[in-house]
């Protein structure tokens, strides 16, 4: 087993999904801490606050971003996040996670450098563990 991820972040409005993922992370002890935002706007506000305070303590190692959300969806969040991302020293790995199997969504996500991969819900437990393992090592 590799190192644990210190801080993971989930941006998703589906409460049931978030609950389940939270449970998985707890049971499998994949991450020490977890940040949860229910839309892109909430997450963006958090990252902007980190910038202002100039402390990267609450900056996640890994982000799981949903596409379809109210107020600010995943694409809009990515547009804004790209603008501020380079101000952070820490390496952040970002996965787009969606139940959409629309190939256009997949293409669009892959065309953005910031996005490491496009994961289709449901994510298998084993794959989930692997992603955390890989990033845990890197973040250590």
């Amino acid at each position: 087993m590799g190192q644990k991820v210190e801080l993971a972040c989930i941006i998703d409005d589906d409460k049931i999904y978030v609950n389940l993922v939270k449970k998985i992370i707890e049971i499998k002890k994949l991450s020490n801490n977890l940040l949860i935002f229910k839309n892109g706007m909430e997450a963006l506000d958090h990252f902007k606050l980190i910038l202002e305070n100039a402390t990267e303590e609450r900056l996640p190692d890994i982000i799981f971003l949903d596409i379809n959300m109210p107020v600010m969806d995943g694409w809009e969040f990515l547009n804004e996040f790209i603008k501020i991302k380079n101000n952070f020293e820490k390496k952040i790995t970002l996965y787009v996670v969606s139940s959409s199997i629309d190939p256009r969504d997949l293409e669009r996500a892959k065309s953005i450098n910031l996005v490491t991969d496009y994961l289709i819900k449901p994510i298998e437990l084993k794959k989930f563990e692997k992603i955390f393992e890989r990033n845990g090592n890197a973040a250590a």
Partner: peptide, 21 residues
């Protein structure tokens, strides 16, 4: 169908996996 229905069915799959585990 692609966005909305699937999100529920995928949650169902996830829960089944968790139940097994």
């Amino acid at each position: 169908v692609s966005h909305h229905l699937r999100s529920h069915s995928s949650n169902l799959c996830l829960i089944v996996e968790l139940l097994k585990d």
